[in-house]
């Protein structure tokens, strides 16, 4: 583990100021950051870790002004168990429940989940034994010609073929969520990018404060389905968030690209149609348009088709 100083923030301003001093990282549940620090797999280890959990009033789920608002420190367990989330924003509840294990969901927060670092096996190799492109611009993407069973089937982003590891991310994009920080409010669709070691657009002193999700139109149904080798605890190999109403469809793929990826062709294929096995199969089949398998992950194309179909059928 790297040595660092630990600072409790009492407010967002406190945290912002601490982070702005440089070479600092925010910590909430710590389920990702601590493993990164213990594994010593970053070239820029923080000298300071800023604890956000001591900031009051950032742990809530409430409906307000036509949208659902979730404090960034709300645990994944609370989201998975929330009746309002389960009933109206089903895909998000299912994504929260599909994340990690019960212990990690009890600790991990929604803010942390969308700020986690890449899970690529080369990025995470301990003691920085591989000069992974995500942490070293002069490095390379080892997965391209190496171990890539879990990697992208839609090519690289910024030279990296890792996938966005967040279960929550595709659900938020599909639900057209906004992500509020101490600096601005992002559309979820713009929030997730490849930015060095980050999976999102945040500045070094930017902190996620709240998730805002517009109330779905009456009759809208949503679902999140996930495929992983291990059912008890695993990152998504393929996941699909689907939000479908009478005249609209939003289908977002997870685990198949460095960013959550809208399956536009699948959306077009199902939009306005009755959901049945045939229409869902048709949409699933086109969900992988433009995909290109790497050496070990051709299977993910098949899985993506099937998971897309199942997510759509779950919205029937």
């Amino acid at each position: 583990m790297y040595n660092f100083t630990h600072v409790n923030a009492n407010s967002i301003d406190d945290a912002t100021a601490a982070l702005a001093q440089g070479n600092a990282r925010a910590i909430a549940g710590g389920t990702d950051l601590v493993t990164l620090l213990k594994g010593m797999c970053t070239l820029n280890p923080p000298e300071k870790v800023v604890n956000l959990k001591t900031i009051p009033n950032m742990n809530y789920i409430r409906e307000e002004g036509g949208s659902l608002k979730i404090g960034a420190l709300t645990t994944l367990t609370a989201i998975a168990k929330s009746d309002v989330v389960k009933n109206k924003y089903t895909a998000l509840a299912q994504a929260a429940k599909a994340t990690a294990s019960p212990e990690l969901r009890n600790t991990g927060t929604i803010g942390g989940n969308i700020c986690q670092k890449p899970r690529c096996i080369y990025y995470r190799a301990e003691l920085n034994t591989f000069s992974c492109l995500r942490k070293d611009p002069s490095g390379m993407c080892y997965a391209l010609a190496g171990i890539n069973k879990r990697h992208s089937i839609f090519g690289a982003a910024a030279g990296c073929v890792d996938v966005c590891p967040s279960d929550i991310a595709p659900a938020l994009v599909a639900l057209k969520a906004k992500i509020a920080t101490n600096k601005k409010t992002w559309d979820a669709a713009d929030f997730f990018v490849v930015k060095g070691e980050q999976i999102n657009s945040l500045d070094a002193d930017e902190i996620v404060t709240e998730i805002q999700i517009p109330e779905p139109a009456s009759g809208t149904k949503s679902a999140y389905v996930k495929f992983a080798f291990r059912k008890s605890i695993d990152f998504p190999l393929v996941s699909v968030a689907a939000v479908i109403s009478a005249d609209d469809a939003s289908i977002v793929l997870g685990g198949v690209h460095p960013q959550p990826r809208r399956a536009s062709a699948a959306e077009d294929a199902i939009k306005g149609k009755a959901i049945d096995d045939a229409s869902a199969t048709e949409a699933g089949d086109v969900a992988t348009q433009g995909s290109t398998a790497l050496g070990e992950n051709r299977y993910k194309i098949q899985i993506t088709k099937v998971m897309t179909k199942r997510a759509i059928l779950a919205c029937a």
């Binding site: 594994g39 301990e126 008890s232």
Partner: peptide
């Protein structure tokens, strides 16, 4: 490369 639990995929009762 499988030096972490996530890659070693230990089985659990779940």
């Amino acid at each position: 490369l499988s030096t972490q639990w996530t890659e070693s995929m230990m089985i659990t009762p779940l």
